[in-house]
């Protein structure tokens, strides 16, 4: 991992068009501004990882199996009233 020391108002540039600015430094946290192109999603790491985990948990690898699909759908219908 690259490690930089940056002061308030300073920034880091990543590749073409991604900038990370140090906006404010507090006792317990640092306020950071990120500028990135629209095709580069930017997320808080803990939220991103939570969504990754939720997606992995929800993915089925046997959906090609019509019976398995039907079983999952039936469960859902039963619960959706």
């Amino acid at each position: 991992m690259l490690v930089f020391t940056r002061r308030r108002g300073e920034a880091i540039v990543i590749g073409d068009g991604i900038e990370i600015h140090v906006l404010r430094i507090g006792r317990d946290g640092v306020r950071i501004g990120v500028a990135a192109p629209d095709n580069v999603p930017v997320h808080r790491q803990e939220i991103y990882e939570q969504i990754c985990a939720a997606n992995r948990a929800a993915a089925t690898s046997d959906a090609a199996d019509a019976e398995r699909r039907a079983a999952l759908e039936a469960q859902l219908i039963a619960r959706l009233k």
Binding site: N55, A58, A59, T60, S61, A63, A64, A66, R69, A70, L72, E73, L76, I77, L80
Partner: peptide
């Protein structure tokens, strides 16, 4: 569409086999 028509399946065509109800 799911067999029931109320739900959709989203199935990946590349990478690991992954389908989402």
């Amino acid at each position: 569409a799911a067999e029931t028509g109320e739900f959709q399946w989203l199935t990946s065509l590349e990478g690991p086999a992954a389908s989402f109800l």
